[in-house]
Design a protein around this nucleic acid. Structure first.
Lengths: 161, 161
DNA sequence: AACCAATGCGTTATGAAATAACATAACCCG
DNA sequence: CGGGTTATGTTATTTCATAACGCATTGGTT
């Protein structure tokens, strides 16, 4: 990444085993409640996102799709991502052209990220958008969604070198 | 765009004539002060951005590059855009893959936009990022830049429909 | 069960956005 | 005017994303 200190990419460990299964099960039950379908391709893509240590590019997901190493076709993954975003299970990080699983509990929240330019991690956080909303409404806008991406150095990369 | 009311794209009129010349001259003098060079390709791309009624895609700029209708080669435009962004004369809107000229006075690294999903305009505004900065610093981050993109309906599109 | 509308998937192909790499030219400064 | 630095021209390629079509599955309705 831009700054390049010597840390190996880390800091946002992917899920595995029971934690992974539990996260997927949570998604599944949420889908059932809303009569949405977590179909096999959608589930696979969600798993890949949850397993990852950081943001994944669409073509990383395409390459990692099959358990046997078989890649997916691009529309398969893009369609799954569209679904996962719609349900709030994943977010697209515009400034990276990459995707992360949602780390926040709440159902309705706006996506906001702290992106480390050194190690590449993207930490989701829940900001207070009230001032921005107020400004937008003062200007006569009806805001539907807000995306915020802050770039800088994470604690680990800031401290070391 | 997404919502599609029937307004013709408008709302952010491009500059022409004296106003255009004046904006370019301002950029030029700012460059001189900082010993940067507003070279012909950079100037051309800046002019195209200033003339436009809304955000321009990179390949729109490539197509519109020559006065004689001759397109530019992609790197020419991308390099110019990189320069214009660095100097604060233009901003990239990540969620649109598009570019706008800077409408604000100050040279801050904070770009914030209200993007109308109906007419496609993108209005730059100067938000108060203090709460987000505070949240980021509380999490131990050293923030370098912040991008905020709010999507919704502008006053014109909100009212009519 | 038979139907059918809606939704999702597989597949091929293509479109759109951005950059790598290398050669040449212009600029600045001593 | 020499030499480093910065900018441009050019070709090619890589990366990111979607269009379009037909088939399969689902879930509701009679």
């Amino acid at each position: 990444m831009g700054v390049d200190c010597h840390h190996t990419e880390s800091a946002q460990p992917g899920l595995e085993g029971a934690a992974l299964a539990s996260a997927v099960a949570a998604a599944e039950s949420k889908c059932e409640r809303t009569r949405e379908r977590l179909t096999p391709p959608r589930r696979r893509v969600l798993e890949r996102l949850l397993e990852a240590d950081g943001p994944m590019k669409a073509y990383d997901l395409i390459a990692a799709y099959g358990q046997d190493g078989e890649p997916a076709k691009p529309p398969t993954v893009y369609r799954a991502l569209e679904f996962l975003e719609r349900l709030g299970f994943a977010h697209r990080i515009e400034s990276l052209n990459a995707y992360v699983p949602c780390r926040m509990e709440g159902t309705s929240h706006r996506a906001a990220f702290l992106i480390c330019e050194c190690c590449g991690t993207a930490e989701e956080f829940e900001p207070d958008f009230a001032p921005q909303f107020a400004a937008a409404e003062a200007a006569g806008y009806a805001v539907r969604t807000v995306t915020l991406e802050a770039r800088g150095l994470c604690p680990a990369c800031k401290g070391g070198a």
